[in-house]
């Protein structure tokens, strides 16, 4: 089938099989059809961004990967396992950590309870000490109520708590949204460190200037599908095209 052949992009030659392969993914909010055949892949150890305007379907893609979209169809393969029909708790247990756009810090839990809430799903996660070293603020405020933290600290907590679980693929949905530049830089450095430790990261971003500092490749999302892929090295050469996509 020639159509199927164009849908699934083969992994670039010379690399291992992709860690995450998404093919023809469709998803719905109630009656409204949001994803119309998303297809992309992420190789082990890569940082990949999904760029696109508001409402393009980036967050829905993240929710579909972790399995919390009620109705979804197509193919999401993680480490060779088809997850499209799995419950989200079983998808997480394959080793995927999810940081939602709204951060999802629990107000009835303290900072340290929030940090240790997600169960360990795979061996080799960071220890609480290592997470405290990465985000010293979390150590100082361990006893505070989770939602009493500043926006930046909440984001660090949301990222920190999935590093404990042993997840190898991190889904970060707009980690820099609404944060001060100095905090954005800290999160950028953290993403760089995590990449150097072998984590694979899918990042949703509106801010491609930030994305440029951390990512290997960028997928451009429009109306529920991937319309372009730009390697980070080509980003400056494609800046006009990208402005057109993002409408900035």
């Amino acid at each position: 089938m020639p159509e199927a052949a164009t849908m699934s992009r083969p992994a670039p030659s010379g690399t291992a099989a992709p860690l995450l392969a998404i093919d023809g993914l469709e998803a719905w909010y109630g009656e409204s059809h949001v994803l119309h055949g998303m297809s992309f892949h992420v190789n082990p150890g890569e940082v990949v961004t999904l760029l696109g305007r508001n409402g393009a379907g980036k967050t829905t893609t993240m929710k579909s990967i972790i399995g919390i979209m009620g109705r979804r169809r197509g193919s999401v393969r993680y480490d060779g396992v088809e997850t499209i029909a799995m419950a989200s708790r079983n998808i997480a247990r394959l080793g995927i950590g999810y940081v939602p756009e709204e951060r999802g810090i629990f107000s009835s839990l303290s900072v340290s309870e929030n940090l240790t809430l997600p169960p360990q799903v795979k061996p080799g996660g960071l220890s609480v000490e290592q997470i405290h070293e990465l985000f010293p603020n979390l150590k100082e405020r361990a006893g505070s109520q989770g939602t009493k933290l500043s926006g930046g600290e909440q984001q660090m907590l949301a990222i920190g708590r999935i590093l404990r679980t042993g997840a190898k693929l991190l889904l970060l949905d707009e980690p820099t949204e609404g944060l001060a530049p100095v905090i954005v830089q800290q999160i950028g450095r953290t993403i760089g460190r995590l990449k150097s430790q072998g984590f694979t990261i899918v990042l949703v971003e509106q801010n491609f200037r930030f994305a440029q500092t951390v990512a290997d490749r960028h997928y451009v999302v429009e109306q529920g599908r991937v319309v372009d892929m730009i390697p980070n090295s080509d980003l400056d050469a494609n800046i006009d095209k990208l402005h057109g996509y993002l409408g900035v």
């Binding site: 972790i66 419950a87 708790r89 997480a92 999802g104 997600p118 679980t165």
Partner: peptide, 10 residues
């Protein structure tokens, strides 16, 4: 507070 997210943690 948020059963969906707790479920998404496994």
């Amino acid at each position: 507070e948020n059963p969906t997210l707790v479920q998404a943690f496994g």
